[in-house]
Simulated assay, not measured.
Amino acid sequence: MPEESVRPLERGLAVLRALAVADQARAGDLVRATGLARSTVDRVVATLARIGYVREHGQELHLTPRLMELGNAYLAASGLSGEVAARTARLADELDESVSLAVPDGDGVRFVTQAARRRAMSVAFRIGDLLPAERCAPG
Rank of each mutant, 00 (worst) to 15 (best):
D29I: 05
G128Q: 12
E60R: 08
V112K: 03
R55Q: 04
R32Q: 14
E60K: 04
G58M: 08
T64H: 09
A25L: 03
Y74H: 07
V45W: 02
R17F: 14
S5K: 08
S39A: 14
E4V: 06
C136W: 15
A73I: 11
A46G: 11
L9W: 10
D29A: 10
L48K: 00
G71P: 04
A14N: 06
G28T: 10
S98D: 04
E134W: 15
P104M: 06
L75H: 10
H57C: 00
S39I: 12
A73N: 08
P104A: 12
S5A: 06
D23H: 13
L95G: 04
E94T: 03
L101S: 03
M68E: 15
R26C: 08
G71E: 11
H57M: 02
G58N: 07
A89P: 00
D96G: 03
R55D: 05
A22S: 13
V45I: 12
T113P: 05
D105N: 06
P65Q: 04
L19P: 01
L16P: 01
I127M: 14
V109Q: 11
E134I: 13
D23E: 15
D42Q: 11
V109L: 11
V54S: 00
R117A: 14
A115E: 07
E69V: 09
L30G: 01
L75S: 09
L70P: 04
L19Y: 02
S5Q: 08
P138H: 10
N72K: 07
A137F: 13
G108M: 08
R43A: 14
T40D: 08
E134G: 12
V84Y: 04
A89C: 03
R66T: 09
L16V: 05
S39G: 09
L80F: 14
V123I: 15
L91S: 03
G79W: 07
E56P: 00
R117D: 13
E134C: 12
A22H: 07
L36P: 02
